[in-house]
Structure formats: C-alpha cells, structure tokens
Design a binder for these strands. Structure first.
Lengths: 335, 335
DNA sequence: ATATTTTAGTAAACCGATTTACTAAAACAA
DNA sequence: TTGTTTTAGTAAATCGGTTTACTAAAATAT
C-alpha cells in the first residue's frame, strides 16, 4: 500500500511540490488558473489526502487538544467531553481523552504524553498534586483551561459551577418548606473544589437563616461506607429532617438508604441532590435536584482554550462561574 | 519558548544526534557506558522530551487510534470508550474520540480526518452509509474493528452482544412468569443491527414458546413520539400484559408512560429492559433488566485492534458475540 | 606482527509536508 | 527600446526525529 504524497501530485500535475503546497493552502495567487485546475484534477484522481503529521511537524500546530479528566463514566465528565468535542469539531480540532482516575502519577504521565504529542492545548479537571507541572506550563504560556476544580495560586482560567450558590439553593428550598435540621452527605475526600465549596455554601446558608451548622450533620464517607455513615447520621438523638446529597453518586447512595430503610420521602426525610440525575422524574416521589450546566461549561472551556491557542497574547486568567438551577420536585416539599 | 530538541541533547552530551536517537530507542549496544551516562544526564538536565510528531513521521506509526461512535452520552458508548482507553493506555496508545451522531457525512469526515492524522487504527460503531469507505480500508488492510453494529458483506471483526439471545431471555423470563401477550418497544430506525436482531430474537422466542408474534405488538417510534405510540399499543383490543424495552432510552420512555398512567407494575403491566440502567434497583418496583458487558466489549475491541496493528498479516474477520445477563428483579415477576 | 572482528560511533538520507528566497518570462511604463 | 513590475512558478532549507551505510580505533585471533 504505497501512500500518495505531495510529490505524486506534483508529478502528475507537472509542477513542483511547492506549488502543490500553495494550492493546498489556498494561496492561489502563486499559480495560473490552468495550473490550479491541473492540480485539482491530480488531487482528485489520486485520491490524495495531505499527511497531517508532516504538516504538523513543520507548522508546529497539531490541531489537536487533550482533555484530562478523572473518569469519563461520571455523567458530568461525559457531558463536558461531549460539549468540548462539539466545539472542537466545528473549529477543526480533534480531542484526545485521558482518564486520570484522580491518580496524580497517571495524570502526570498523560500530561507528558500530550505534550510530547505536541497537542495545541489541554483542558483538565486537575488534581492538586501536579501543581508544579501546571505552573511550568502556565509560565511558558501554554494554552491551558481547568474545569470543575480550582487550584489555588495558579491563576489559570477555570470554568466551574457556582458551588456555594448551589448549596445555598438547597438549604433555602428546604427551609422555605419548613425544614430546620438539614444535613449534608458528601463523598470523601472533601478537599476537592466542588465539595469544599458546597460544604462552605451549606454552612453559610444555614447561618444566613439563623440556623447553626453542626459538624454532626456533615456526613462524609467513601462511597462503600456511605450506608453505615447514613445509619449513624439517622441514629443521632436529633436526626436530620432533610439531607442534601453533594453530588449524583452520594445521591444514589442516599436513595438506596431511603429505599432499604423504607423511609417515606419527604415525610420521614426530605432530600435534594446536587447534579440532576436522569431518573429524578421517575423516582417515587420525584426528586428535587440542582442541575449544573455541564454542556455550557464544556463549551466555554473549549472556546476559551481555542482562543488562547489562536491569540498569542496572554489572557487574563479568571474563574468563570456557572449558575446552578433548582428543579423543584416532590422530594423537598412540605411534608 | 525555545523547545529542546535532540540536537541540543547531542551537543550537551558531545555526541551526534544519531547516538542520542539510539539511546532514546534503547539500543545501548551502539555506545559505551560512559556515553550512555552522559546522554542520560543531558536528557535530564535539559528536561528533554522527544517530539512524537517527528518520530511518527519517520516511523509511520502514531501510537494513536481513533474511535468513532454515535454519541458518547449513551451509557453503552461511555463504557465502551472507557474500556478502550484503559487498554490503549496500558499499551501506550492514545485515543481520539469522534461523535458522529449517526450522521453519515459527519462519520465520513471523521474517518478522513483520522486517516490524515495517520492514526494506527480505528474502532467504530458504524453507520451503513459509508460502506464503500470502510471496504476500501479493509482492502488496504487497514486495522479496523467494529462494535455493536455489523455491516453485511464487509467481513470486518465485530464485537457485539448476542442480541437474539438477549431478546429470548426477556421473552422466556416473561413466559415463565405466566405472561403471554408480550410486546416489544423499540426506537426507530429499526434497521441498525442491535435493534434488528433483538426484534428477530423476540419473534423467534415467541414462536419457540408456541406464541404468535403479531406485528401489532412491535411498537416502534422515534423517541419523541413514543408516548403516543405506547398509548396506541395499550389501547388495542387485546393490550399486552408485558412489554420489553429494546434499549435504555426506550425503557426510560416506558417508565415515564407507566408513571404518568399510574399503571401498576407488574400487576397491570410487566416490564423488562435490555441494557441495565443505573437506577433499576431503586425504581419501584425494582426493574428486571438484561445487562450487556459493555466493558468487555470495549476491552476486546481494543485488544483486537492492537493485535491487528501489531501483526501485519491479515486476521480472520469474525463476529464475536458477548453474553447478555438477566438481572431478575420485581418488574417481571408473576402478578 | 598482521589480519580480523568488535566496539563505538558518525554523516547523510529520509519521512512528507511548508516556507523562504529567488527567477524566468510576460506585461507594462516611460 | 529599455527599465520596472507582475505573474507564475521553482529549488532548497526546514521541522525533529530515525535509520542505514560506513569508519576509526580497539580488541582479539592467528
């Protein structure tokens, strides 16, 4: 299988490869109309497709970006990726995806792979551990955008939910419906940005309402231990009347708990989940959730990255906050 | 930002770039131990990373594969991608993903992009429309693996569910529980492989049980019209006692219908869905489903592709069938 | 001591494009 | 007619590696 190169086209059209290259890049002013036509013919007849690798080598642009995230199985990540891919596709970029599994060494390996591959930019949901590496990239003005998580002191454009507001919406919805003992259920670790901020928002919102946020009511656990953690929470002398699940996975755990313990929602316990889940409408009762605009976030991240790639000048690094949206259903209403 | 090249390393180590290249490729027999050490030093001190693009150009291997699928938002696709990425990562390959949205011209565009980028192979959930393009690839012995869908007369390795068996499992489970009037709910178009085969399997299984498969009971519709289609189905003189949803999206529609019409499951209507959905356990009643081993399918697809990439010789193109698994829950039991 | 082999390395061609500097011929101006 | 500009193109360098063919010096064999 001999591949067709620019030289084959040049020969068939009876011109030099320089001219073919000009043709391929649309600089028709370097050739006559007849020549242009002959090249066009030759390209078609030979079924010629330029070798992007060779082009990239010379141009120092690969028209490819890398996306590093924890796990594409998380629905937030899936949506973000989809949005990124849409934007990139439209702009002629291709997307290499990397599941770093929140594993810093895997993340590092991927970053280096992507750089070796000369990708034009990277979008990441970063771990905190490779801060030095990211800092180095930032210093050499390498196009970089973060999503969902913020790394302190790094000053890199980040697209994320207004997490405090999201938590506040939950609290307000519950207090508006007369609930006062409101707990929060979270996965561990609680140090990553969205969890940290949501917990902050939860505390502040309670205080705003004149309620005190007791540490007892912040139930954190790894996923597998969440059932027992919930049991403890509900066994308190003053068990909560309502629980906010910090993300979709915690919410699933909460639903499992509710189901296994035959709790009536919202009678025995009101619940709200951050992250809209596909079956919120189908659950009995329908579940109140906070939706986050994952597609918008992905779209804006891609758009920002491509801007950075195109404009050589440094852009202001900033945090863009996206608005959460309360979807009120029956699980949080007055009992 | 001047990038460090092999020449910089060569200079600093006081050798030719050929020798550095040998070093980078682990062919240490071409140099003395001291030289080897000096190069190692130089690489470290300069923080040198070989440019993969340049290497790819010469080696004609990019260590990259492309994956073309309909939409990464479908949970089957997400799982397949994740499994592919895992395998590829382990083998040093990177993955470019392409959402073709079942749009043949988008699919074609992506295939050509990937080829221009010289990816070493492609995994696709193909549409039928680019059969000529795929045939051409197959002829030039280009590494190619299909997932989920089969294209007739193309003889390309394909990894897919044993769809007929999956449908049969549904029918058998329902008949075992005493149901006889069993309908099937499917999205349109019904021509794509999994849907086609599942419908076939449904018909055969009914016949095996001595039940006749009436066309009335095969309810197909695009997603948005599925509610009205279901209404029609249940308005038949002899409405079905049970419905099999052909995939997760149809199943969601069915659940919505059940909920809105306050049907009792399985009392008024027994239901089973092909594709295990995340909340099957949480629904009331818990939902019987057929799970398909999406991770295995992705893993095997990636493994097969990499084999094809490595071995130059032609492999037997074949269809590998994966086993469906019935997860029996309450929605299909005797009423 | 000489011939042969091994060791340690190098120079140059190459992968397939882009880009720069240059030019012959034609067109135009004075 | 001569000088200048424009048109239409080309040759060669380049991107950053890999690979092949070759060689000087050292080690070994005879």
């Amino acid at each position: 299988m001999k591949t067709v190169t620019i030289i084959d086209v040049a020969k068939r059209a009876g011109v030099s490869k320089s001219t073919v290259s000009q043709y391929l890049n649309g600089r028709y002013e370097y050739m006559g109309a007849d020549t242009r036509e002959r090249i066009k013919q030759a390209v078609e007849e030979l079924g010629y497709r330029p070798n992007t690798i060779a082009r990239s080598l010379k141009k120092k642009k690969t028209k490819t970006i890398g996306v590093i995230l924890a796990n594409i199985l998380y629905s937030f990540s899936t949506k973000v990726i989809r949005a990124i891919e849409d934007v990139c596709n439209r702009e002629g970029y291709q997307v290499i995806i990397c599941n770093a599994d929140d594993n810093p060494s895997k993340e590092k390996w991927y970053i280096e792979m992507l750089l070796a591959k000369q990708v034009d930019g990277i979008i990441a949901i970063p771990t905190k551990s490779n801060i030095d590496l990211y800092r180095k990239l930032k210093e050499r003005n390498y196009p970089l955008v973060f999503v969902d998580r913020y790394i302190d002191g790094l000053d890199i454009s980040t697209m994320m939910l207004h997490n405090e507001k999201a938590a506040k919406m939950c609290v307000d919805e519950l207090t508006d419906n007369g609930y006062e003992r409101i707990a929060m259920l979270t996965m561990e670790p609680i140090s990553i940005t969205p969890r940290f901020e949501r917990i902050q928002g939860y505390k502040k919102a309670l205080e705003d309402k004149g309620l005190k946020a007791t540490e007892d009511y912040i139930a954190s656990a790894p996923l597998k231990e969440m059932q027992t953690r919930l049991k403890e929470l509900m066994a308190l002398k003053q068990p909560p009347q309502a629980i906010i699940a910090i993300n979709d996975l915690s919410f699933m755990q909460l639903l499992t708990f509710v189901k296994e313990n035959k709790l009536e929602v919202p009678g025995d316990l009101a619940i709200i989940g951050i992250d809209d889940i596909s079956f919120a409408d189908l659950f009995d009762p329908p579940l109140t959730t906070i939706a986050q605009p994952a597609f918008d976030i992905g779209r804006e991240a891609a758009a920002a990255l491509i801007q950075k790639i195109n404009n050589r000048y440094v852009m202001d690094a900033d945090i863009r906050r996206f608005e959460p949206r309360l979807i009120r259903r029956a699980s949080s209403t007055k009992s």
